[in-house]
């Protein structure tokens, strides 16, 4: 069985999610009031059902709080699959690394918005591979491949028009 701390965190996340679901439904319902009734049949049906199901779910949780707690890996699972697939247990002690990875993902997204796909994506690959202390050749090669694919296959070949980067919009060009 997972340790009490993990169980507590897992249950807290579960509660937060349920509250979020209900809050979203209520928000939707409040937004429905301004709309003509004809546009709201389906949203009413869905939002109200959501609230009802959330109540049923909450009742079940209150009756038996332990019912969704993480179980230890089953005998048939090999370790990696189990660790990747099963709940919060797998994440214990890895918080910092998880945050670092999310930071990487968000930095990539932000960089693309600032500098555009053509610049940001190759730079990200270069930076990531070097940060992980892999070889220069791979970093440069990978960056070059992405640059070439974006420029010549997507932009020139397929005439795909990527959104204009913010930097270009702010400083003209």
């Amino acid at each position: 069985m997972a340790d009490p701390e993990t169980v507590r965190v897992a249950r807290a996340i579960d509660w937060i999610l349920v509250v979020l679901f209900v809050a979203t439904s209520v928000l939707f319902i409040s937004l429905l009031l301004d709309l003509p009734p004809r546009a709201t049949i389906f949203p009413w049906f869905v939002s109200v059902t959501m609230v009802l199901v959330a109540l049923v779910y909450t009742a079940g949780n209150l009756r038996n709080p332990a019912r969704w707690d993480d179980k230890p890996a089953e005998s048939g699972d090999d370790e990696e699959t189990a660790a990747a697939a099963i709940g919060i247990v797998a994440l214990r002690g890895r918080g910092r690394e998880i945050l670092r990875m999310f930071a990487a993902v968000y930095i990539l997204g932000g960089a693309i918005m600032l500098a555009g796909h053509l610049v940001a994506v190759p730079l990200f690959i270069l930076a990531y591979v070097l940060y992980r202390r892999e070889s220069w050749v791979l970093a440069l090669g990978g960056a070059a491949v992405f640059f070439l694919v974006i420029q010549f296959v997507f932009i020139e070949g397929m005439d795909i028009v990527f959104p204009e980067p913010m930097l270009l919009r702010w400083f003209g060009g």
């Binding site: 679901f21 546009a39 709201t40 939002s47 959501m50 199901v53 779910y57």
Partner: peptide
């Protein structure tokens, strides 16, 4: 749990409603 599945399905339905309402063209959410 079927309840979790239904809640997630419902969330998906709600996300699908963002945008213009079919039939009236009103912008929702």
């Amino acid at each position: 749990s079927a309840a979790r599945g239904l809640l997630m399905g419902g969330l998906g339905l709600m996300i699908s409603m963002i945008g213009q309402a079919p039939g009236t063209g009103d912008t929702r959410f």
